[in-house]
């Protein structure tokens, strides 16, 4: 059993719904996106090309981040997932340096500190602190107690973090939040070891490739088809 994902670039419309669904699910700070994007604009007027590539941890089979971690905080878990144990993390950032995809983030500050501010824009307005008190939540009103079962809702300053394929959802028989949120159904998650799984079939049919396949990291997020339609003019 090896979890993998396929992203159909033709279906993807670059809306970043995956980014926001991930933020809502995993309570990342304003500056950190576990699910993020690479946007490239190329060409010269009027032959312009704009491409959106959704990115996240590739859960590499030969994960360089795991090899680099001196404390085994970054480790391989069941289903081939690359997981992170923040209790063991010493914040050395070796994983970040070694990740060829740049999808690991570091908490330079204590997360969600802006929610402690107790001044408002007017006497009859909320403040961050009073809004948090009125709404509830740990760290911010957007904290999710469900994902907190697998990973602390408010991270410690000086530790890294990254996508865990919504391991808490996988355990409950659900797809990662980004998969469910995609309006164009461009994302599929499944077992790469099972040749009959939808992910395996899509990879075969469309010759799916991970990003920077040449590095041999055994990345398990595969991309199929093209974001840009063929110019059929």
């Amino acid at each position: 059993m090896r979890y993998g994902m396929v992203i159909d670039q033709q279906k993807c419309v670059g809306c970043s719904g995956c980014v926001f669904a991930c933020k809502a699910e995993n309570h990342t700070t304003d500056d950190i996106n576990w699910c993020d994007k690479i946007i490239t604009t190329s060409g010269q007027y009027p032959d312009v090309k704009f491409e959106y590539v959704s990115t996240m941890c590739n859960h590499c089979d030969n994960a360089p981040c795991v090899g680099a971690c001196p404390t085994q905080a970054m480790h391989k878990g069941e289903g081939g997932l690359t997981l992170h144990d923040p209790d063991k993390c010493i914040g050395c950032k070796a994983c970040m340096v070694n990740c060829p995809y740049g999808v690991i983030s570091f908490n330079w500050e204590k997360p969600h500190e802006r929610w402690l501010v107790d001044t408002g824009v007017a006497a009859g307005s909320f403040t961050s602190a009073t809004m948090l008190m009125a709404a509830g939540g740990e760290g911010s009103p957007h904290s999710n107690p469900e994902s907190a079962e697998a990973y602390p809702s408010v991270r410690s300053r000086g530790t890294v973090e990254k996508c865990n394929f919504c391991v808490h959802r996988l355990k409950a028989g659900l797809s990662p939040a980004c998969v469910d949120a995609c309006p164009s159904r461009a994302r599929v998650v499944g077992d790469l070891d099972d040749p009959a799984s939808e992910v395996s079939q899509l990879i075969r049919k469309y010759e799916g490739k991970p990003l920077r396949a040449e590095l041999g990291t055994g990345a398990k997020v595969f991309y199929i088809r093209s974001y840009t339609p063929e110019r059929r003019t």
């Binding site: 809306c15 970043s16 980014v19 809502a24 501010v117 007017a122 006497a123 009859g124 957007h142 309006p183």
Partner: peptide, 23 residues
């Protein structure tokens, strides 16, 4: 199916600068 704007409604709802009471 949805669009990315829907999520921003969550931040509008829990906006710390929201009006709390008549003024």
């Amino acid at each position: 199916a949805s669009c990315p704007r829907q999520y921003l409604a969550l931040q509008e709802l829990y906006d710390p600068d929201r009006v709390r009471t008549p003024m």
